[in-house]
Amino acid sequence: MGRIAYVNGAFERHGEAAVHIEDRGYQLADAVYEVWALFDGRLADPEGHFARLERSLSELKIPMPMSRRALTVVLRETVRQNRVKDGLVYLQVSRGVAPRDHAFPTDPVSPAMIITVKAIDRAAAEAKAAKGVSVITTPENRWGRCDIKTVGLLPNALAKQAAKERGAAEAWFVDELGFVTEGASSNAWIVDADGTLRTRDTNANILRGVTRYTLLDLIRETGMKVDERPFTPAEAKAATEAFITGAGALVLPVIAVDGAPVGKGVVGPVATRLRRLYIERARETAI
Score class of each variant (00 low, 15 high):
V133R: 00
Q27I: 14
T181N: 03
A168F: 00
T240P: 02
R3S: 10
V93F: 03
N205K: 14
S56T: 12
Q161W: 07
T272L: 08
A256I: 09
A242G: 10
D45Y: 13
R200W: 13
I190G: 00
D194T: 11
N187T: 08
I219F: 04
M224V: 06
Q92R: 07
G167A: 05
A193W: 03
A260L: 03
G41P: 01
W143N: 15
A5W: 11
G195K: 11
G87K: 03
A239F: 09
G263L: 12
T211H: 06
A256T: 07
H102V: 13
G195W: 09
M224Q: 12
V262M: 02
Y26E: 09
R212D: 04
R122K: 15
V191L: 08
I136Y: 01
V267A: 05
G167W: 01
I244G: 01
T181Y: 02
A31V: 07
R68D: 06
R198V: 09
T240I: 14
I120C: 05
S186E: 00
E16S: 10
W189R: 11
T214Y: 14
R52A: 11
A171P: 01
A119G: 10
A17N: 05
R229P: 04
E140G: 06
A124V: 07
G268Q: 03
A234H: 09
D23T: 10
F243R: 10
A124N: 01
L154E: 14
A129H: 15
F173K: 07
I21E: 01
R76K: 15
F11S: 06
R229W: 05
P105Y: 08
G25T: 13
H20M: 04
L154T: 15
E284I: 08
C146Q: 13
V74L: 11
N82Y: 05
A260H: 10
S67T: 12
V257W: 01
L71Y: 07
E221R: 08
V180F: 02
W172N: 00
Y213L: 13
V89L: 14
A159I: 06
H49C: 12
A103G: 12
T202P: 03
T137F: 08
A204W: 08
L88C: 08
L154I: 15
K160A: 07
K160F: 04
V270F: 04
D40P: 05
T78C: 13
R166G: 02
A282S: 15
E235Q: 15
G195E: 09
N187K: 03
I21S: 05
E12D: 10
L75C: 14
R275H: 14
R13L: 13
A130F: 02
T222H: 06
M66F: 09
M1V: 08
L252C: 03
G25Q: 12
E221T: 07
R275I: 12
K131E: 09
D175G: 11
G25F: 03
V254Y: 00
S58N: 09
E140F: 15
N187S: 12
R273V: 06
V191P: 02
L75H: 09
V7W: 05
G263H: 14
M224C: 05
I136H: 00
W36M: 09
K160G: 03
